[in-house]
Amino acid sequence: MDTLPTGKTILLVEDDNDLAALIELHLKILNHHVVRGQSCADATTLAAQHKIDLWVLDRGLPDGDGLSLCQMLRKNDDWTPVLMLTARDSELERVDGLEAGVDDYITKPFSVLEFQARVRNVLRRHQHREGPSNNELNGALETPLQFGALTISPQQHDVAIDRESISLTATEFSLLHFLAQRPGRVYSKTELLEHVWQTPYEGYQHTVCSTINRLRSKLRQRGQNCIQTVWGVGYKFDPLTTRH
């Protein structure tokens, strides 16, 4: 069984002091180190002073939108995971977040247990992406997957079409790589939650749909239609629809 990531440095940016104190307490229960800020300016300063393993960002900050901070990270090719806190629960808000590169969303008010679970899951996904696996330590590196013009390179965390990289979030990459390892195999939302999000919590199913839609849109913009919906069942990677 996978070990839980602990001892991480988490940047918490939340202007509600009471909520920030509660979040910090429960992050410390998970054995993480917390640095706190209350604004976009604080976040930028603290990020320059510490090696951050996870950003926990309130969307509504006194000097701007937390989403802009995530966009700044991604434009700078910084894929440190981001968990967004928001009082907004519309589908459009979630789509905006995913497009900006947010790894996960949690809507206020939220339970402590759900928050801790989401932190663990985001860090675990990032750990799988960044850290060496047992096979890698034994010298057996994962090889790229090639489907016509589409190349998925797990070691470089890179997806390229005609040798030109496309920008994916950590979750989008993990989802595509997982599906592509077994072409034609149909996975239900519940199975994807267990294998990619590593949670059995069915409340995430909307997140699965949103992530699939964002991933499919990015691929289709480059002429790839390899993520297929099997109505009433789930999703699959179909290599026959990749462009050669």
Rank of each mutant, 00 (worst) to 15 (best):
N121F: 00
I106H: 00
V159M: 09
G97D: 04
D96M: 06
G101A: 07
W79R: 09
L92W: 08
N135W: 11
P109F: 01
D103R: 03
N121W: 08
S111K: 15
N138G: 10
E114T: 05
T107L: 06
L145R: 15
R118W: 10
D104G: 03
N134V: 09
G97H: 01
L141K: 12
V159Y: 08
G131A: 12
L141A: 14
V95I: 10
L145A: 09
Q146E: 14
M84H: 10
P109L: 00
D77F: 09
Q146F: 02
E91D: 03
D104V: 03
S133I: 08
R118I: 14
A100D: 08
F147E: 06
Q146N: 11
L123N: 08
K108Q: 08
L92T: 15
E114W: 09
D104P: 15
F110A: 13
L137G: 15
Q156M: 14
G101M: 04
D104I: 02
L92A: 15
A100N: 14
G148C: 08
V119C: 07
L92M: 08
D96P: 15
Y105G: 06
H126N: 15
A149F: 00
D77Q: 15
V95D: 01
W79E: 00
R124E: 01
A100T: 15
F147H: 12
A87E: 02
Q146W: 07
L145N: 05
T107A: 04
T80P: 05
G131Y: 14
E114P: 02
R88D: 13
G131E: 12
E130G: 00
V122T: 09
T143Q: 15
P109E: 02
D89V: 01
D77M: 15
D78E: 10
N76Q: 10
G139A: 06
E114L: 05
A87K: 06
R129P: 09
D96K: 10
Q116Y: 07
A160Y: 00
P132W: 13
R118P: 10
P144V: 03
R120G: 04
L85G: 06
S111M: 03
G101T: 11
G148K: 06
N134R: 06
D103S: 14
F110S: 04
F110Q: 08
M84A: 04
V112N: 14
N134D: 11
L83A: 02
E93H: 01
G139R: 03
D77G: 02
N138C: 11
A149Y: 03
D104W: 10
H128T: 00
N134T: 04
D104C: 13
S90D: 09
E136Q: 15
Q146V: 07
G101L: 03
G139N: 02
D158E: 02
K108I: 11
K108W: 03
V82G: 01
S153C: 09
V119Q: 13
M84S: 02
R125L: 05
